[in-house]
Design a protein around this nucleic acid. Structure first.
Lengths: 160, 160
DNA sequence: TATTGTTATACTCTATAACTATA
DNA sequence: TATAGTTATAGAGTATAACAATA
């Protein structure tokens, strides 16, 4: 559905692209989130476990940078995961302000079983695009991201 | 940052495209959300007001279809908007189960002032892509959306 | 002084299901 | 019976700011 807004030509073009980007992203997210419910995980929780699985134990500060969210919010998410014994906090010996966050065996088991079907599902959904189209989509999205906004170290992002 | 997951070639390609799509969408959303705070609106609230502005008064059921969310959740969002006298519920004369949701003058004033800078900001952000690239991005995103999932009437989506 | 992480507060949104009133 | 919308419940996430402990 094209925009109903009457703006300049450039605005119409940009709004149409924006709507389609948001909708595609939202629909895929929604589909995947529904499927993660089977593992009893929200997307944020999945993100934390996945980072720990693929990048190894790390501090909360580091996780919050990877997931682009605040320290206070990571505390909440980690609290929820810790209640279920999926992660544990270990005092960092070299910096006693920090914790190193680890997967527990149960947490590792959960994410190791949850990740592969998730990856296969993404592959299936993106299968409507050719490999070439997927690369082009990635290139265009990359151009859109992080432009002239509060940039980090460049090392952010999930462990995928 | 490319994926750290070791899967098939097709999986790597799809995951990389997926990460970039999600990140671009998330960053743009986050940027716009921060800017909407100036108007005291969340994105959901903006979405409702924007639909009402561009498509006119409609039932809650209709709004929920446009915004891809449940009736119960729209009740919550409308409650919050109604508290601030930005919308009003009017009993539908022909179907007494339904309400027609209207913008109040204050709501119309708010969204009429909030929308143009929002549209300009989107145009600015998408300005890193040429018009041709924006169209291609839109085409690829459209292919990704709504594939073999619970489809609606085809009339869904925001009023943009 | 700056940083890591927690706590407190308050709100928005989501999902689900049971419910009322109307069609 | 089905639909429009509300209410109830419960939980997750967010933002922000103040705070403690450590660097």
């Amino acid at each position: 559905m094209p925009t109903h807004y009457k703006g300049t030509g450039a605005e119409i073009e940009a709004l149409n692209a924006y709507i389609k980007l948001r909708r595609a992203s939202g629909e895929i997210e929604h589909t995947l989130e529904r499927e993660l419910q089977a593992a009893g995980l929200t997307e944020s929780q999945f993100g934390v476990l996945e980072v720990l699985l693929h990048l190894g134990p790390m501090s909360q500060r580091c996780i919050s940078r990877k997931l682009f969210t605040s320290g206070a919010n990571i505390t909440t998410i980690l609290d929820n995961l810790e209640k279920r014994s999926l992660i544990l906090r270990e005092r960092c010996p070299t910096d006693r302000r920090a914790f190193t966050i680890h997967l527990t065996p149960a947490g590792r088991d959960l994410i190791e079983h949850a990740f592969p079907p998730h990856a296969r599902r993404i592959t299936e959904l993106f299968g409507v695009l050719s490999a070439e189209e997927q690369r082009e989509l990635g290139r265009l999205c990359k151009l859109l991201g992080r432009q002239n906004r509060d940039c980090g170290t460049g090392d952010e992002g999930c462990g995928l």
